[in-house]
Design a protein around this nucleic acid. Sequence first.
DNA 1: ATTGACATACGTACCAGTTCGTACATTTTG
DNA 2: CAAAATGTACGAACTGGTACGTATGTCAAT
Lengths: 212, 212
Amino acid sequence: MASKAENGRKNDPQRTQENILEVATEEFSTHGLAGGRVDAIAERTRTSKRMIYYYFGSKEGLYLAVLERSYRKIRTLEADLQLSNLEPEEALRVLISTTFDHDEAHPDFVRLVSIENIHHAAHMLRSEAIRDLNVSVIETIAGILERGVSQRVFMRQADPIDIHMMISAFCFFRVSNRYTFGSIFRRDLSEAATIERHRTMIADAVIGYLKA
Amino acid sequence: MASKAENGRKNDPQRTQENILEVATEEFSTHGLAGGRVDAIAERTRTSKRMIYYYFGSKEGLYLAVLERSYRKIRTLEADLQLSNLEPEEALRVLISTTFDHDEAHPDFVRLVSIENIHHAAHMLRSEAIRDLNVSVIETIAGILERGVSQRVFMRQADPIDIHMMISAFCFFRVSNRYTFGSIFRRDLSEAATIERHRTMIADAVIGYLKA
DNA sequence: ATTGACATACGTACCAGTTCGTACATTTTG
DNA sequence: CAAAATGTACGAACTGGTACGTATGTCAAT
């Protein structure tokens, strides 16, 4: 009677897919697309390799699903910042801190983006889902910059995408190049004190640039 | 008689190795370590797969040789800047421009570094050759910063490694993340006007940061 | 409520192509 | 001639993908 008796299997498609994606994210982000092994993923899954192909069709299909899932996760986090009621400078500091903390907290995501770049973003280009995101950040920055300029807090008329790039570059690089950088300069970029210093540094640099 | 008659083969170990390394650099930088194919490299070479193993022992050995060669190439370029007779601010601008132009001109190198980071810099760590480089940049920056502070041109006492990271991050990111960035924001980062703007931007930002 | 039919979800074993690496033979060079 | 350099052909293991069979859930008709 007990429905899960003995070796009783329980169909749970959603959990199975989620489980596969979780494991696959880890595998691909540590070994790359070509380096990631479908068998290795299957082994660490509650289910079997058959299910990977059942749900995702191919290795590339799985990889794309992993990528989309990672991007989708950010959107939810980054959306609900209430920046429009803050002073321009403060708003920008909050936005920068958020980006900084996000990259620091999601090395998997950073690595996947690096991997995508090695593949010339070929998979991202084929996915409408992904391209639609991120654009909102630019509008947010544009708003802050405009307000800052009209209030004479910012002296420089800067391109929002350029500013976004400057912020992203610093936050992303700290995580993406952590290992080579650490290996060359014997510096651990994940130390608490270093993190604090860098978080302030990038904000000061960007705001200083806009004020000049 | 004629030494290279008919199908006459000419032994030229140095050129053979160099040829292999050239092709391998291209292969690994576009496909990664796992994605790069030894057979594909061999085919595009003047020689055969046998020679790859003769000279480099294994796929990983070849990859490491590619990596070391790339790093060695930079050192020669970056060494002979005469910065000590320039004013601090000007010296820093020249150094930043050089870094910027270097990354822009050597996407292969940038990609290899990205790939190394995906592998947690495992190969770099095993190579003394590579670690010894790059350290000179820090001494150069340290010198500039000291002079700048004592001349009251720079108001801020900054860590040279942090400054190097800020510069590297921006220059590196522009190239390493060119594809995903371009795909999301529909912006071509290799346009001449954009390059010019960004080169000035990073210099202004860093110098502004130090002057604040 | 029970049965049967059908779609969905899942597991095992296996195959076929790829890919790193090598054995063996040969040529060049000093 | 010996050592270094090179070419050809092949093997063994790995790896993405699949054929085949089984279990689970759903729903309509009894």
